[in-house]
Design a protein around this nucleic acid. Structure first.
Lengths: 351, 351
DNA sequence: GTGAAAGCGCTAACAA
DNA sequence: TTGTTAGCGCTTTCAC
């Protein structure tokens, strides 16, 4: 069951069989037909290892993710996969497995094993060693998500996205706007949250609106985290210092709490929505909530958001590295699209 | 940058270097140290292609999924990955890409290219051709999810799970129980939904409780689908025939609609919860809702569910095929665990 | 404990 | 258009 069998059966040479199978020019059509037929009959299956050894090309690209079970990563992987499949490449997945994962081993033992021809890194922040180790492989590389020094990157302009969100809220008349962001421990994502927060702060400052520090809350980029953050923001202490009198049952009075919350992800926004509902705060009547992502759940509940398309980003990234594998110059990748989708969770602030 | 370099630098033979690198016995400890050191200095990275060619083992296993961006699949992949990494295996992902994916090509061109030593199939239903094509590769194989004729399988006992859910509801006093299930088009999952529905129907019949056909609703295994199904069930026509008078605003009167809904997935249950909220139906006061899965979102909103652990299932599956790759007899895989987690969405029916 | 040599299954010059 | 001849980088008998 190798190329040789086909050669002997057809009475041709291995070389010709190889050429025929790969559809190279300069092989008689009849020969191609014959070879193909025999290969089929014999149930021939090419060995990627042998081909890889001979050519130095594995026809596979590695995708490195912090974790898989998060909306953004899963979607992005899907996009990368789609493009790879189109090109006849396989996708080998390197899951760093969150903070608990044995990241080091993952790196050395596998990713560098020339099993792949290129790497797509999903919003990773690498340390010095990792960076230089990867550089050493001379593989085409690109990162999706936060910009990483020295590497090409595809992703939305997070600062601009935050500005858009703030602009929407400001336009509706809001001035008391809180932010829910923070780090995603599981995701090991660092740059993106910072850029969104800075974008928020800058936009607010640009509009001359003050943001009390206590209105910058950590939602851990998760639904549960968002719910907790929402609880803190809406029921806990308001804008000011710790204890306040007359706020009945520990609940922030309407005049003290924000009239809008900008969340750095839809999942957190959904959490905030949950918190609001639990506290009996009407949305968007008493509180506006806006997220980032374009998560399906958000659509179902009518969440206003700045939607991005991680799948498209995955495709873009895959195309980029594939082109580079084929010898193209790295080239610049344009920023990914993000569009404001106004739905039912934002409206004018209460009077 | 091959094994040869190390050989010349150390003054040893390729054979010894190879042995040292792989930690085989019968190599002097000093030699091993020396080789390792030199390899490190040279930044040596083994070629999996060459090793694979020589041994016939790729040290990689393929994971075939209908789609990646679904809770169950993402979690399960994570589990498989964890186990593979432990064993020093790589994971190559074959995403069938939903109904739109070019399934055929995915099969022939890649999966069979002996790039992997074994296959883990995630709740797939294969047609004849696919089955026999896979058989032909003689690879160890296992499926996670619905049982598939001729293949080992890991997963919960869906019939039992459904019975547990029904038991819980019945125990609370419910008799008017509806079911939200249906097919997950994206997931291409067939057996599981049927088994859960049948389990539900059997359990109900066993308890002598009638289920009107209109109380079997399709929720497409998604949040949005669940919300739609919930709307239909709770606001649309009740148990009986189409139009009814006096049901005000097209809403099913409390006496006609179910007092409990069993959903074949947590995502659908969350959708039903959303529908109930929109209709102003109190949960669990007027309506109990139970799901299956153990989704994080469910935990956050207090959804009662039968939790399963897809990650553990992934690990189990990986272990099983890995063992088989190492020459072990296939062996029987015990059913995966599923545990009733009672939270706040189920309670006694309204009087 | 170590070395020499023969492949693993394919591709890639170079001839014919 | 097809065949010949070398490898790709590793593992693996079989000697030493």
């Amino acid at each position: 069951m190798g190329i040789q069998e086909i050669a002997t059966v057809t009475g041709l040479s291995k070389a010709t069989v190889s050429r025929a199978l790969r559809g190279l020019p300069s092989v008689a059509d009849t020969t191609v037909d014959h070879v193909r037929r025999v290969a089929d009959e014999l149930g021939y299956v090419p060995s990627s290892a042998a081909a890889g050894l001979a050519t130095g090309r594995q026809r596979a690209v590695g995708v490195v993710v912090p974790v898989i079970d998060r909306w953004f990563y899963a979607k992005a992987i899907g996009g990368v996969d789609a493009e790879l499949r189109r090109a006849g490449y396989d996708l080998v997945l390197y899951n760093l497995g969150g903070p608990g994962g044995d990241r080091d081993r993952a790196f050395r033992r596998s990713m560098l094993r020339h099993r792949v021809d290129a790497l797509v890194l999903l919003s990773l922040v690498l340390d010095e060693t990792e960076r230089s180790e990867l550089e050493l492989t001379r593989h085409p590389m690109i990162v999706i998500g936060g910009p990483t020094p020295g590497l090409r990157n595809v992703g939305v302009d997070d600062v601009a996205v935050a500005a858009t969100a703030v602009g929407h809220l400001l336009g509706l008349g809001h001035r008391r706007i809180a932010y829910v962001g923070g780090q995603d421990e599981a995701g090991m994502n660092v740059a993106v949250p910072f850029r969104r927060r800075d974008g928020f702060l800058d936009a607010m400052a640009g509009a001359g609106v003050h943001v009390p520090p206590s209105w910058l809350v950590d939602g851990r980029f998760s639904f549960a985290g968002g719910a907790a953050a929402g609880g803190l923001l809406l029921a806990g202490s308001g804008s000011g210092s710790g204890a306040r009198a007359g706020a009945g049952a520990g609940s922030a009075s309407a005049s003290e709490r924000p009239t809008a919350v900008f969340c750095a992800s839809d999942e957190m926004a959904l959490g905030v929505l949950l918190a609001a509902r639990r506290l009996g705060i009407a949305v968007p009547g008493e509180l506006s909530v806006i997220g980032i992502d374009g998560h399906e759940y958000g659509a179902a509940v009518g969440l206003t958001t700045i939607a991005q398309d991680p799948e498209a980003q995955g495709r873009t990234a895959a195309c980029a590295v594939l082109a580079e594998v084929d010898g193209a110059r790295p080239g610049v990748v344009p920023p990914a699209l993000a569009t404001l989708v106004v739905r039912g969770t934002t409206g004018p602030p209460p009077r």
